[in-house]
């Protein structure tokens, strides 16, 4: 006995009628008389597995994951990244000058012609000394300030060089201790000075001289070990100055 139907094109390595037993009578589909041809011949080829059938989606899945993550993470760069100081752009030793250059949007408060333009802030900064002091100098405005009980005061000395009219607003000089505590990061400082990067009593937020020195005072816990000075202008990047 031979088979009743011979496939015109045999499937690759696969019998299209697995139910046909070689050398035996073909088992028929229900309702078919022996000898008749099944009306709807299923397409030849091996039934594709789940992975094959969904291959396109499987390829698209990792792409979709990447796209959705990127879409929902816009807050990281839109809100978190520009707000705060969290990127160490440079690290120098005490006394070593650092060249800082960063762009910011000028509001034109001090130099009206720069209003609403992006300006490159370029300056050389050197932290020349960090010392514990026993008393605070008289502030430019207001009553003298005593070092409060349970605190010690540090004087941070800096030297700046920049073209006059360089905007130094949002200047922050923070002392970082070995446990990561950031002392004095917010303005105004202990003497009520709202811009630490300009000489005491300067009005406005732009530099006037090509070079100048600044002394900034910070209150610190008595048992803290200061390891680093951080200089920043609103972030997100900051200059780290390692203390010996």
């Amino acid at each position: 006995m031979t088979t009743l139907v011979t496939p015109a094109v045999p499937g690759p390595g696969q019998d299209p009628y697995p139910s046909l037993q070689p050398g035996g009578a073909p088992s028929l589909q229900p309702g078919l008389l022996p000898g008749s041809v099944p009306p709807d011949v299923p397409a030849a080829g091996r039934p594709r597995g789940w992975w094959r059938r969904n291959a396109v989606w499987l390829v698209l899945l990792p792409i979709a994951v990447v796209v959705t993550t990127a879409a929902s993470s816009f807050r990281v760069w839109a809100f978190w990244w520009p707000d705060g100081v969290h990127y160490e752009s440079q690290r120098v030793a005490l006394g070593e000058p650092a060249h800082l250059a960063s762009e910011y949007l000028d509001m034109g408060f001090d130099v009206p012609e720069r209003a609403n333009t992006y300006v490159l802030r370029e300056l050389d900064a050197t932290v020349t000394g960090v010392e514990k002091v026993d008393e605070l100098p008289a502030p430019a405005y207001g009553m003298p300030v005593e070092i409060p009980e349970g605190s010690v005061a540090y004087e941070v000395q800096l030297h700046f060089a920049a073209e006059p009219q360089t905007d130094l607003s949002l200047c922050a000089i923070a002392l970082v201790s070995d446990d990561g505590t950031r002392y004095g990061e917010a303005a105004p400082d202990v003497l009520g000075n709202s811009n630490r990067c300009l000489p005491d009593g300067a009005d406005g937020f732009v530099s006037e001289q090509p070079e100048w020195d600044v002394s900034s005072f910070v209150l610190v816990d008595p048992d803290a070990t200061i390891e680093q000075v951080r200089l920043s202008f609103g972030g997100p990047d900051y200059l780290a100055v390692e203390l010996p």
């Binding site: 409060p148 349970g150 605190s151 950031r182 002392y183 004095g184 990061e185 209150l219 610190v220």
Partner: peptide, 8 residues
């Protein structure tokens, strides 16, 4: 209130 480390 607002405060920084280094003082009470």
């Amino acid at each position: 209130a607002k405060a920084q480390p280094g003082y009470a």
